[in-house]
Design a protein around this nucleic acid. Structure first.
Lengths: 119, 119
DNA sequence: TAGGGTACTAACAAAAAAGTAAGTATGGAT
DNA sequence: ATCCATACTTACTTTTTTGTTAGTACCCTA
């Protein structure tokens, strides 16, 4: 959403790895500042409207919430469901691809919990 | 290594989630710009010296290579082995904790490969 | 005595990510 | 006619990450 320079050294390297390494590609989809939080809530609660997500994600700004949701939608991980009514009502849920992240997120959570305290 | 403002909104939120969510903690350790690349090479080749890593990580700058290695070492994922000789020889290998990331990285790789082409 | 190879370090600049504050559209309720 | 709630949008600033370039130390070799 915010524009990046497409020919910076960093962008070129990033694009290269994202297209040639499964791990890098995966990280590029779930690595955003608030993405795992959003994905986790949606995994647990199935469907949430915009304001419900905002209330759960303590500390997030509207700008970030929208931009993370847009990226997740663009990457095919969440569906945006618009109800035609006033005041507006928009809900978010995981796509099949989003749901398929569950085992990965579970494993990340377990590894993290196992290593959190230790040095 | 590079200093951050410790009381910015972003830092506070990040620290909060990293200490309370296994996934966030895991991401904070492996999410650095070149960390998965370094971890992958060390998983495959067991032990590599600094210059060997530099040659494999096409596009990385010395500054980034050092800073990523230092963070991985601080987080207990890699060992730094210094040989007392001239010219210097320093090798890097995974710790047990680093090795324990293998299943996670494998899963991330698989998910990425399965989803790379599709839209 | 000058140069070479390795593993770094440091200072400054550019790029990218995130924060902040204010504004928009809509139709229904008052 | 005004206010309200929801889901955004926009412009501008700060913070954070990364790049770039130019060093350093060490002993050995020529």
């Amino acid at each position: 959403m915010d524009k990046r320079k497409e020919n910076s050294t960093n962008s070129i390297n990033e694009a290269y790895w994202n297209n040639n390494c499964g791990i890098a590609f995966t990280l590029s989809l779930i690595g955003g500042r608030w993405k795992i939080n959003i994905l986790s809530y949606l995994l647990n609660e199935k469907i949430l409207r915009y304001s419900e997500l905002r209330n759960r994600l303590v500390g997030i700004s509207e700008r970030m919430l929208i931009s993370q949701l847009k990226e997740l939608e663009k990457d095919g991980l969440v569906n945006r469901i618009v109800h035609q009514q006033v005041p507006p009502k928009v809900e978010y849920e995981l796509t099949e691809r989003g749901l398929s992240l569950q085992p990965l997120l579970d494993l990340m959570d377990k590894w993290g919990e196992d290593n959190l305290g230790d040095k």
